[in-house]
């Protein structure tokens, strides 16, 4: 049984936990999926000016992080933006 466990994928309990964490954070912050989509598109637009990024791989989420001031957590926007190529020739400089 233990050996089998090694080959098994992540238990559905953990999946549930991960999903819930995200659902609840966005529930609590009243962030609708539409809003998230808009933010995502704007980020793509802005970053694309400077870098070549992969719009498909881009992932943004509202989650919680330890507040810098110490105790408690604060909501945070996490963005994972895969960069394909840094465009040094464009931009403001």
């Amino acid at each position: 049984m233990k050996l089998l466990d090694l080959f098994r994928k992540k238990g559905s309990g953990d999946v549930a936990k991960d999903r819930l964490k995200f659902i609840l954070v966005s529930d609590r912050s009243n962030c609708s999926p539409e809003l998230m989509e808009m933010i995502k598109n704007d980020i793509i637009e802005v970053i694309s000016k400077y870098m070549d990024i992969d719009p498909q791989g881009l992932d943004i989420q509202i989650t919680e992080t330890e507040s810098e001031g110490g105790n408690g957590t604060v909501p945070a926007l996490f963005a994972n933006i895969p960069i394909k190529d840094l465009k040094h020739n464009r931009g403001t400089r």
């Binding site: 992540k10 238990g11 559905s12 309990g13 953990d14 549930a16 936990k17 819930l20 964490k21 609840l24």
Partner: peptide, 17 residues
Amino acid sequence: DMVKRGDMLKVEDVCDI
């Protein structure tokens, strides 16, 4: 039994959330 199998949220997980 399901928690042990990893197929149900643990008590700690629920409290945590």
